[in-house]
Protein backbone atom coordinates (compact mmCIF):
# COMPACT_ATOMS: atom_id res chain seq x y z
CA UNK A 1 0.00 0.00 0.00
CA UNK A 2 2.77 2.39 0.96
CA UNK A 3 4.67 1.45 -2.16
CA UNK A 4 1.63 2.27 -4.30
CA UNK A 5 1.16 5.71 -2.69
CA UNK A 6 4.83 6.48 -3.14
CA UNK A 7 4.66 5.44 -6.77
CA UNK A 8 1.55 7.57 -7.40
CA UNK A 9 3.20 10.54 -5.73
CA UNK A 10 6.29 10.01 -7.87
CA UNK A 11 4.24 9.85 -11.07
CA UNK A 12 2.32 12.99 -10.09
CA UNK A 13 5.55 14.84 -9.32
CA UNK A 14 7.02 13.69 -12.60
CA UNK A 15 3.99 14.96 -14.56
CA UNK A 16 4.17 18.32 -12.77
CA UNK A 17 7.88 18.66 -13.53
CA UNK A 18 7.26 17.68 -17.12
CA UNK A 19 4.59 20.38 -17.47
CA UNK A 20 6.81 23.02 -15.90
CA UNK A 21 9.70 22.02 -18.15
CA UNK A 22 7.49 22.05 -21.26
CA UNK A 23 5.95 25.37 -20.21
CA UNK A 24 9.41 26.88 -19.92
CA UNK A 25 10.51 25.52 -23.31
CA UNK A 26 7.30 26.56 -25.11
CA UNK A 27 7.39 30.12 -23.77
CA UNK A 28 11.15 30.55 -24.24
CA UNK A 29 11.38 29.23 -27.77
CA UNK A 30 8.16 30.74 -29.14
CA UNK A 31 9.95 33.42 -31.09
CA UNK A 32 11.94 30.85 -33.09
CA UNK A 33 8.69 29.59 -34.49
CA UNK A 34 7.92 31.01 -37.95
CA UNK A 35 4.63 29.61 -39.29
CA UNK A 36 4.61 32.11 -42.18
CA UNK A 37 7.41 30.26 -43.96
CA UNK A 38 5.12 27.26 -44.48
CA UNK A 39 2.14 29.03 -46.09
CA UNK A 40 -0.94 30.84 -44.82
CA UNK A 41 -1.08 31.70 -41.12
CA UNK A 42 -4.38 30.88 -39.44
CA UNK A 43 -5.34 33.40 -36.78
CA UNK A 44 -7.70 33.25 -33.85
CA UNK A 45 -8.74 36.84 -33.20
CA UNK A 46 -10.21 37.54 -29.78
CA UNK A 47 -12.45 40.50 -30.44
CA UNK A 48 -14.17 40.76 -27.10
CA UNK A 49 -16.55 43.67 -27.22
CA UNK A 50 -17.01 47.40 -27.82
CA UNK A 51 -13.80 49.39 -27.84
CA UNK A 52 -11.64 46.26 -27.89
CA UNK A 53 -13.26 45.14 -31.14
CA UNK A 54 -12.75 48.49 -32.86
CA UNK A 55 -9.14 48.54 -31.75
CA UNK A 56 -8.26 45.03 -32.89
CA UNK A 57 -9.90 45.54 -36.30
CA UNK A 58 -7.81 48.66 -36.74
CA UNK A 59 -4.71 46.61 -35.89
CA UNK A 60 -5.65 44.12 -38.58
CA UNK A 61 -6.18 46.71 -41.32
CA UNK A 62 -2.77 46.08 -42.85
CA UNK A 63 -2.45 42.33 -42.31
CA UNK A 64 -2.06 40.71 -45.71
CA UNK A 65 -4.18 37.91 -47.20
CA UNK A 66 -1.51 35.48 -45.95
CA UNK A 67 -3.22 35.66 -42.55
CA UNK A 68 -6.05 33.25 -43.27
CA UNK A 69 -8.39 31.89 -42.24
CA UNK A 70 -9.34 34.37 -39.51
CA UNK A 71 -11.43 32.95 -36.69
CA UNK A 72 -13.07 35.65 -34.60
CA UNK A 73 -14.21 34.99 -31.05
CA UNK A 74 -16.74 37.37 -29.51
CA UNK A 75 -18.59 37.40 -26.19
CA UNK A 76 -22.07 35.91 -26.38
CA UNK A 77 -23.54 39.02 -24.75
CA UNK A 78 -22.11 41.27 -27.45
CA UNK A 79 -24.30 42.39 -30.32
CA UNK A 80 -22.24 45.16 -31.90
CA UNK A 81 -19.02 43.27 -32.60
CA UNK A 82 -20.42 40.86 -35.15
CA UNK A 83 -21.60 43.76 -37.28
CA UNK A 84 -18.25 45.56 -37.00
CA UNK A 85 -16.41 42.38 -38.00
CA UNK A 86 -18.66 41.75 -40.99
CA UNK A 87 -18.19 45.33 -42.19
CA UNK A 88 -14.42 45.00 -41.77
CA UNK A 89 -14.25 41.66 -43.59
CA UNK A 90 -16.43 42.81 -46.48
CA UNK A 91 -14.03 45.72 -47.05
CA UNK A 92 -11.23 43.21 -47.76
CA UNK A 93 -10.69 41.93 -51.31
CA UNK A 94 -12.99 38.94 -51.82
CA UNK A 95 -11.31 35.57 -52.12
CA UNK A 96 -12.72 32.38 -53.63
CA UNK A 97 -13.15 30.50 -50.35
CA UNK A 98 -14.59 31.58 -47.02
CA UNK A 99 -11.73 33.06 -44.98
CA UNK A 100 -13.41 34.27 -41.82
CA UNK A 101 -15.58 32.66 -39.15
CA UNK A 102 -17.21 34.00 -36.00
CA UNK A 103 -17.57 32.06 -32.73
CA UNK A 104 -19.33 33.09 -29.53
CA UNK A 105 -18.18 32.11 -26.05
CA UNK A 106 -19.40 33.08 -22.57
CA UNK A 107 -17.70 36.15 -21.17
CA UNK A 108 -15.17 35.38 -18.49
CA UNK A 109 -15.76 38.68 -16.76
CA UNK A 110 -18.38 41.36 -17.11
CA UNK A 111 -17.29 44.83 -16.04
CA UNK A 112 -17.93 45.27 -12.28
CA UNK A 113 -18.30 41.53 -11.65
CA UNK A 114 -16.94 40.37 -8.28
CA UNK A 115 -13.63 38.51 -8.20
CA UNK A 116 -14.97 35.27 -6.71
CA UNK A 117 -17.63 34.86 -9.38
CA UNK A 118 -14.97 35.80 -11.96
CA UNK A 119 -13.10 32.59 -11.08
CA UNK A 120 -16.23 30.49 -11.67
CA UNK A 121 -17.09 32.13 -14.97
CA UNK A 122 -13.46 31.92 -16.14
CA UNK A 123 -13.54 28.16 -15.54
CA UNK A 124 -16.82 28.10 -17.43
CA UNK A 125 -15.21 30.02 -20.32
CA UNK A 126 -12.32 27.50 -20.31
CA UNK A 127 -14.80 24.71 -20.92
CA UNK A 128 -15.72 26.41 -24.20
CA UNK A 129 -12.23 27.65 -25.06
CA UNK A 130 -10.35 24.33 -24.82
CA UNK A 131 -12.46 22.40 -27.37
CA UNK A 132 -12.54 25.42 -29.71
CA UNK A 133 -8.78 26.00 -29.72
CA UNK A 134 -7.98 22.27 -29.88
CA UNK A 135 -10.27 21.91 -32.88
CA UNK A 136 -9.09 25.01 -34.79
CA UNK A 137 -5.39 24.67 -33.87
CA UNK A 138 -4.56 28.21 -35.04
CA UNK A 139 -0.99 29.32 -35.74
CA UNK A 140 -1.56 32.57 -33.86
CA UNK A 141 -3.88 33.87 -31.17
CA UNK A 142 -4.19 37.65 -31.51
CA UNK A 143 -5.77 39.57 -28.66
CA UNK A 144 -5.84 42.98 -27.01
CA UNK A 145 -7.33 42.79 -23.57
CA UNK A 146 -10.87 41.53 -23.11
CA UNK A 147 -10.99 38.96 -20.28
CA UNK A 148 -12.17 36.36 -22.79
CA UNK A 149 -8.65 36.09 -24.20
CA UNK A 150 -7.11 34.55 -21.06
CA UNK A 151 -8.80 31.11 -21.33
CA UNK A 152 -8.25 31.08 -25.10
CA UNK A 153 -4.53 31.83 -24.70
CA UNK A 154 -4.21 29.24 -21.94
CA UNK A 155 -5.78 26.70 -24.29
CA UNK A 156 -3.27 27.69 -26.98
CA UNK A 157 -0.43 27.36 -24.50
CA UNK A 158 -1.65 23.89 -23.56
CA UNK A 159 -1.47 22.76 -27.20
CA UNK A 160 2.19 23.73 -27.11
CA UNK A 161 2.90 22.11 -23.75
CA UNK A 162 1.36 18.84 -24.91
CA UNK A 163 3.51 19.00 -28.04
CA UNK A 164 0.49 19.02 -30.37
CA UNK A 165 1.14 22.41 -31.93
CA UNK A 166 2.97 25.61 -31.05
CA UNK A 167 0.40 28.40 -30.98
CA UNK A 168 1.96 31.86 -31.00
CA UNK A 169 0.33 34.26 -28.56
CA UNK A 170 0.36 37.87 -29.75
CA UNK A 171 -0.94 40.42 -27.28
CA UNK A 172 -1.39 44.14 -27.91
CA UNK A 173 -2.18 46.20 -24.82
CA UNK A 174 -4.96 48.70 -25.40
CA UNK A 175 -3.97 52.27 -26.24
CA UNK A 176 -5.95 53.30 -23.15
CA UNK A 177 -3.21 51.81 -20.96
CA UNK A 178 -0.53 54.43 -20.47
CA UNK A 179 0.95 53.80 -17.00
CA UNK A 180 -0.34 50.41 -15.89
CA UNK A 181 -1.16 47.12 -17.62
CA UNK A 182 -4.69 45.76 -17.55
CA UNK A 183 -5.27 42.61 -15.47
CA UNK A 184 -5.37 40.60 -18.70
CA UNK A 185 -2.12 42.24 -19.77
CA UNK A 186 -0.40 41.31 -16.51
CA UNK A 187 -1.38 37.66 -16.96
CA UNK A 188 -0.51 37.45 -20.65
CA UNK A 189 2.83 39.19 -20.17
CA UNK A 190 3.96 35.89 -18.64
CA UNK A 191 2.81 33.56 -21.42
CA UNK A 192 2.71 35.61 -24.63
CA UNK A 193 5.34 35.34 -27.36
CA UNK A 194 4.93 38.91 -28.63
CA UNK A 195 3.68 41.51 -26.19
CA UNK A 196 3.06 45.00 -27.59
CA UNK A 197 2.56 48.21 -25.62
CA UNK A 198 1.72 51.60 -27.11
CA UNK A 199 3.25 54.03 -24.65
CA UNK A 200 6.92 54.49 -23.67
CA UNK A 201 6.16 54.46 -19.94
CA UNK A 202 4.94 50.86 -20.20
CA UNK A 203 7.88 49.84 -22.38
CA UNK A 204 10.26 51.11 -19.70
CA UNK A 205 8.46 49.18 -16.99
CA UNK A 206 8.08 45.90 -18.93
CA UNK A 207 11.39 44.99 -20.60
CA UNK A 208 9.97 42.04 -22.56
CA UNK A 209 7.43 44.28 -24.29
CA UNK A 210 7.66 45.55 -27.87
CA UNK A 211 7.08 49.24 -28.55
CA UNK A 212 6.43 50.49 -32.08
CA UNK A 213 4.72 53.74 -31.10
CA UNK A 214 0.96 53.94 -31.35
CA UNK A 215 -0.28 51.20 -33.66
CA UNK A 216 -4.04 51.74 -33.57
Amino acid sequence: MFMFAAEAAFVFLFICLFFIFRFYIVVKTGRNHRPGTKGPVSVLVVAGSGGHTSEILRLMEHLSAAYAPRHYVIADTDRMSEEKISTFESSKPQSASETHFIFRIPRSREVHQSWSSTVISTLNALRFSLPLVFRLQPDVVLCNGPGTCVPLCVAGLLLGILGIKKVLIVYVESICRVQTLSLTGKILYLISDYFFVQWPSLRDRYPKSIFLGRIV
Binding site: R58, S64, L212, G213
Partner: peptide, 17 residues
Protein backbone atom coordinates in the same frame (compact mmCIF):
# COMPACT_ATOMS: atom_id res chain seq x y z
CA UNK B 1 -1.48 55.34 -34.97
CA UNK B 2 0.32 53.20 -37.53
CA UNK B 3 -1.15 49.69 -37.80
CA UNK B 4 1.17 49.24 -40.80
CA UNK B 5 4.13 49.05 -38.39
CA UNK B 6 2.41 46.24 -36.52
CA UNK B 7 1.74 44.31 -39.75
CA UNK B 8 5.35 44.76 -40.91
CA UNK B 9 6.72 43.59 -37.59
CA UNK B 10 4.50 40.52 -37.54
CA UNK B 11 5.32 39.61 -41.16
CA UNK B 12 9.01 39.66 -40.32
CA UNK B 13 8.66 37.82 -37.01
CA UNK B 14 6.48 35.04 -38.44
CA UNK B 15 8.34 34.77 -41.75
CA UNK B 16 5.36 35.86 -43.86
CA UNK B 17 6.35 36.92 -47.38
Amino acid sequence: GQPKNFANFLDKALGVK
